[in-house]
Design a protein around this nucleic acid. Structure first.
Length: 835
RNA sequence: GCCCGAGUGGCGGAAUAGGCAGACGCAACGGACUUAAAAUCCGUUGUCCGCAAGGACAUGUGGGUUCGAUUCCCACCUCGGGCACCA
């Protein structure tokens, strides 16, 4: 459809891109590191599932532009790329097609790499890592052992999320609306013994250190804050009637303690068993527990699900007023949060209110609005707000804010409660009952129990010859030579742990490995990591706002505590790009709506693909895919190509005449305008790209320059053109375009007669004097409405501006006969006459 | 339900610190070139009134602050995202 050769007015992108790929490949090794300040630039490494799509392309193109600009600005840049290569897609593909995951992933890595290179994206390939390489996962296992050694990797029995389709457990973060993040299957609950990383130990620091993350988008921090879910309140001990024991509850509303009318235990609470054992309630409670357990997480989590509960026949005592309060069990109290038990205050809590209404339990108002009454007997809904305490013994009459503090202080004094903080965040479940992951380096010995594999025995190699059908047990269980081993401690018979690690473990530290990927003494050498880290600019999709970004922050903090690194946060600046949609859905392989960059590269060239994706809109916003932008981008590049071609001709012509030699030749008005535009463009482009990440406006500035150059060619005959001005404009245009369209720019740079690569040039600087125009347009407003425009010298005084404005005939019409109350002048901008 | 974010021409978007709303591009229309078309180059293009000069209206809706609001504040509507029995 489009011309293959560069005849006429279109350039031959295929020939140009192939030519420069070849030349660049040869120059690769010779690239020297700059002397300037270090700059670690990183895009989230991909899971190579099949072919890369436009979402990947967007990510890498943004990174590549920044990489090229920073290098030319003199930074010492590290820009690595690697592969997140363990995980379910590889294993699922293997099950479906019979290809081994290793083969499948290697093929995909090859095709990703090829596509990336075809786009002209430049990486430090000598830093490449692949997480499924034993050289990499050896250190993932090493890190696991470090965590274990420090009590941060623990094995515990807990209710866990189970995806019946993926046949494995999942971390909380991997569940979206009660469904598996990967396959959207409803998640169920299982009680299993599993390995956890104690991220909850770091909950407070993950919150506190957010103040170091000034370079992160606010919304990502807010999402993490919500996820961690810190609440301040109090733990209060409730004595059990007929026992000398007490049981604790957590509440954020200690000011409502006098309003407690019942007490609820979660169905999973160990006390439930104890309280009903041998009583008339036992059978029914057992049945109830069973019933709740069967409900999937979705059902139990949804607020529209009916609250259900049972009285246990026992009582606790309200420690403040010594009242006897009945103990219930109810489905809406979660074992995982707080203490698994609550004090119920139906007057001031929606859920307790609903429950009390259903089971006809008493409701007692203890807070009333500051200005108003509340009818206890006709309550329509719980009153959740602040207010004045009533019916609260010695605390009555206090403001609830004040009362909160006073009551906690009283509880602490009496030793029956204390100020406390609770988090929504749970420990990170890292076991996976799947084959394609890093084996957990643990051995179970009949005599010694849980024994970590010694550091020197790492890696625990993943066997290649395994029947990897998902059964709900790790496929490794059926691999005799893997499972059966000897205990590192007593040399007796022992079994290996057969679960593998969540792939998010692998990706929680890859940015450290990148600094020195071939290091063999440990996961990373401190000096290299301390030089390059933290990552100066991290770029990736917002879908990792919680998962990957929070896990990585957690890992870095653990390494900090172990003295392995000197920084507390891994990513100083984060840029979250928007997603690409097509036909209303996020572009992804599973949705089958992928637009592959290959076709565009083939038909229009890599430069067009790059330009198009950057010009489509602000990079942080989501975009709907459209083919139209491709044509437009291609048209612009051709416009540049023709312009430079013509400039080269003009310059040759001009240099062969005497014009250039007579340097005293006057500079025309058009020359001045073009020079000004050239310098203004350097300024705007540089600011937009390197400070604001506003690639779309940077490109529009280039388009304006190109338009002005066409205008210059139109208005000034070829013989009259000023060679210096023309050369400057042309060369600046090519230099600025270079990070966006590297192939075409390199070609044009060569045609302009240069030997060195345009990509090795220092970033162009501009002259503020030249960029400044000597005349500006000032707006005249009457009562804030635009009435006239005047052209004045740039350095005009405010007085002068005012004078000219008041003499404007056009404006005068609008205030004739009225009194001028005030005249507002803004230097260089406007004069507003208020009448 | 709670917490974020966004709403600007036919479309993607611009307006960087409260000061010319609509840069740049797409689409559409007109002209030049061409036997013709494509490509290219040059124009026009927010809406309404007007022959025109010109004017009125206009950044989701309604209010407010200000000489002046796309920009700040309040309320509401719509869309997108996050969380969702978290005590």
């Amino acid at each position: 459809m489009l011309g293959v050769t560069a005849v006429g007015n279109r350039y031959d992108h295929r020939q140009i891109e192939e030519k420069w790929h070849r030349i660049w490949e040869g120059r690769e090794e010779k690239r020297r590191r700059a002397k300037g300040r270090k700059y670690y630039l990183l895009e989230m490494f991909p899971y190579p599932s099949g072919e890369p799509h436009m979402g990947h392309v967007k990510n890498y193109v943004i990174g590549d532009v920044l990489n090229r600009v920073r290098r030319r600005q003199g930074y010492d840049v590290l820009h690595p790329m690697g592969w997140d290569a363990f995980g379910l897609p590889a294993e699922n593909a293997a099950i479906q097609t019979g290809t081994h995951p290793k083969i499948w992933i290697d093929n995909n890595i090859k095709s990703f790499k090829r596509a990336i290179k075809a786009l002209g994206i430049q990486y430090d390939w000598d830093h490449e890592v692949t997480t499924c390489d034993p050289d990499y996962y050896r250190w993932t296992q090493w890190i696991f052992l470090k965590f274990y050694e420090n009590g941060l990797a623990v094995r515990k029995r807990a209710p866990v999320n189970w995806c019946p389709s993926c046949n494995t457990v999942l971390a909380n973060e991997q569940i979206v609306g009660g469904r598996c993040e990967r396959c959207s299957t409803e998640v169920t609950q299982k009680e299993l013994v599993q390995w956890f990383f104690k991220i909850t130990d770091y909950a407070q620091r993950l919150l506190d250190d957010m103040e170091l993350l000034r370079g992160w988008p606010e919304r990502v921090l807010i999402m993490q804050q919500n996820w961690i879910g810190r609440s301040e309140g109090a733990t209060v001990e409730f004595p059990l009637v007929g026992s000398d024991r007490t049981t604790p509850i957590f509440t954020t509303r200690p000011d409502t303690l006098y309003g407690v009318t019942f007490f609820i235990l979660s169905p999973e609470h160990p006390l439930v068993e104890e309280l009903v054992k041998g009583t008339e309630y036992e059978d029914e409670v057992r049945k109830f527990q069973e019933q709740v357990r069967k409900e999937s997480l979705v059902d139990r989590g949804a607020p529209e699900v009916e609250k259900k509960g049972l009285f246990l026949g026992r009582y606790v005592v309200n420690p403040l007023n010594e009242e006897k309060v009945p103990v219930w069990v109810a489905n809406y109290v979660l074992m995982e949060y707080g203490t698994g038990a609550i004090m119920a205050v139906p007057a001031h809590d929606e859920r307790d209110f609903e429950f009390a209404r259903k089971y006809d339990l008493p409701i007692r108002v203890v807070i009333k609005p500051r200005d108003g009454e509340i009818d206890e007997h006709n309550l329509r809904e719980a009153y959740l707000g602040e207010g004045v305490m009533v019916n609260s013994g010695p605390f009555s009459g206090l403001d609830s804010q004040e009362g909160k503090k006073k009551i906690v202080r009283y509880l602490e004094k009496e030793g029956i409660g204390k100020f406390d903080v609770s988090y929504r965040l749970r420990d990170w479940l890292i076991s996976r009952q799947r084959y394609w992951g890093a084996p957990i380096p643990i051995v179970y010995c009949e005599r010694c129990g849980i024994v970590p594999v010694p550091y020197d025995d790492l890696p625990v190699l993943l066997p290649m010859d395994v029947d990897f059908k998902p059964t709900g047990q790790s496929p490794l269980t059926s691999c005799q030579e893997f499972v059966e081993t000897s205990c590192p401690r007593c040399r007796g018979l022992a079994k290996r742990e057969t679960d593998t690690m969540d792939t998010f473990v692998c990706s929680s530290w890859y940015y450290l490995r990148f600094c020195s990927p071939h290091y063999i003494e440990g996961p990373f050498p401190k000096e290299d990591v301390d030089y390059w880290m933290p990552v100066d600019q991290y770029i990736g999709g917002v879908e990792h706002a919680i998962l990957h970004l929070m896990y990585s922050r957690f890992f870095t903090k653990v390494f900090y505590d172990l003295g392995m690194v000197k920084f507390k946060e891994p990513f100083a600046n984060l840029f979250t790009q928007g997603m690409i949609y097509k036909d209303g859905a996020k572009m992804s392989k599973s949705k089958g709506n992928i637009v592959s960059p290959d076709r565009i590269v083939e038909d229009y060239g890599a430069d067009t693909a790059r330009l198009m994706i950057l010009f489509a809109g602000p990079p942080e916003l989501d975009m709907e895919w459209s083919d139209r932008g491709v044509e437009g981008a291609y048209r612009f590049l051709n416009r540049v190509w023709r312009l430079v071609r013509d400039s080269v001709r003009s310059l040759q012509l001009l240099s062969s005449s005497e014009r250039e030699i007579s340097s005293e030749r006057e500079i025309s008005q058009e020359d001045v305008k073009l020079r000004r535009k050239t310098h203004q463009t350097i300024k705007k482009f540089t600011q937009d790209v390197s400070e604001r990440f506003s690639f779309n406006t940077a490109i529009s500035a280039l388009m304006e320059l190109v338009n002005d150059m066409y205008k210059y060619n139109e208005l000034v005959s070829q013989e009259e053109q000023n060679p210096q001005v023309l050369r400057e404009a042309t060369e600046i245009l090519v230099q600025l375009l270079a990070p966006i369209a590297p192939h075409l720019s390199e070609e044009l740079w060569e045609q302009l007669g240069h030997k060195e690569s345009v990509h090795d040039l220092p970033w162009p600087s501009y002259d503020e004097e030249i960029a400044r125009s000597e005349e500006i347009t000032v707006v005249i407003q009457i009562n804030g409405k635009l009435r006239d425009r005047i052209t004045v010298p740039v350095d005009i005084s405010e007085e002068e501006m005012k004078k000219i404005a008041l003499s404007s005939q056009k404006a005068a019409k609008f205030y004739e006969g009225k009194e001028i109350k005030k005249v507002i002048t803004v230097p260089g901008k406007l004069v507003n006459i208020v009448v």
